[in-house]
Write a protein that binds this DNA or RNA. Structure first.
Lengths: 199, 199
DNA sequence: CGTTTAATTAAACACTGTTCAATATAAAAA
DNA sequence: TTTTTATATTGAACAGTGTTTAATTAAACG
């Protein structure tokens, strides 16, 4: 078969990312197969290389999709949140990871060698999550704080991330931890409380 | 070639773990190859399956070795530590990960499906790290604390781990974070300070 | 010594990711 | 409309991988 016109370039790209994302959700990063994605999309392997340049390119696009869905979930929860928006964030962080363990883990299992080579659209989609958290951290802090808020927000994300990754990977289950979300939230609250008083 | 007697079973096991650990340090988890380990050890692939039952068994043994080396490094630093033993711990955590990024990452990249099936010796080697931290957390807290110290220690480990994994994976570098160790230590100190006062 | 037992291998199988010449077809030019 | 050009698509080839298993050979035992 030679040139086809079943899909526009944009449609084809979308199709591959969608099928790839589904496969990732089904089997996870270690069992992920580019050939299988092509098979499901009704194209042959080479097409992935035409469209994304490499398998890494497809994987990056799949993970970016996960980032976007994750950010949407956080926004959704913030919109429905009561007073305690920080709790909504932390719970949303965990909830997404636990409801989508395989796609969520894939984000961290796929090491991007030179991250500068990520397409603009990918970088943007990924940054959103950080921005959402930053907004809420600003909101939780006194106006006249002398903290580097961006840096502080990243540190709180890292704190929650550490707890969350232990849960999803199963290390915490082994240690019979019953309330990892609670622990993560405790650490975040402790830190925020101190910085709220300090002003 | 049939049965050989170049190594005792124990020696052979040790040889494979050692070669495997070296290979992991050279190429990292994604490029790791059981066949290559066997090649370097001068045996054929099947031997790995004789000795460890599966490739996962070898990987578990390799990662356990990393845990043991890591724990040794922490103990070494604690022995030479001044007053601030918590800082020694956090710095030791990061230092080991940054000096051994590939073997350290492999610990978290190799998902063990049913962790109950880890050999006793592996479980023991891995638990040591947690115990070291627990000891120091007890030391840092008032005697009459009503905290669940084991659980609290795990939470602090998760906090540091979150920061550390961002550094090693390169996510923090991208965000121009200059002092992740400092951030992690800040979060740990904040929490400890509160729990020191609370008594 | 012969027999049993166990370690070791090589080959086979079914997969991977990646590259690339051949080709069929859509788009452009005549 | 016909011819030409450009390109999207494929399928095969290559070099790997993990895993299983029958055959082989050497050690251990009686």
């Amino acid at each position: 078969m030679g040139r086809r016109s079943d899909h526009t370039p944009a449609q084809l790209r979308e199709l591959l990312v969608q099928q790839g994302h589904e496969l990732m959700a089904e089997v996870g990063y270690p069992q992920f197969s580019g050939r299988e994605v092509a098979r499901r999309a009704g194209y042959s392997v080479g097409t992935i290389y035409n469209v994304f340049g490499s398998l890494d390119g497809l994987l990056a696009a799949i993970n970016t999709r996960t980032f976007v869905l994750w950010a949407q979930e956080l926004r959704r929860r913030l919109d429905q949140s009561g007073e305690d928006r920080i709790a909504s964030l932390v719970e949303g962080y965990f909830a997404f990871a636990l409801e989508n363990p395989l796609t969520w883990s894939a984000i961290y299992e796929h090491r991007v060698a030179e991250e500068q080579e990520l397409p603009e659209t990918d970088i943007e989609g990924r940054a959103t999550l950080t921005l959402i958290v930053e907004e809420e951290v600003v909101r939780a802090l006194p106006e006249n704080t002398d903290l580097d808020v961006a840096r502080y927000a990243r540190s709180l994300i890292a704190t929650v991330h550490g707890h969350c990754s232990y849960v999803v990977s199963g290390s915490f289950a082994l240690l019979e931890e019953t309330d990892p979300v609670g622990s993560a939230l405790d650490r975040v609250r402790e830190s925020l409380r101190l910085h709220q008083l300090q002003a």
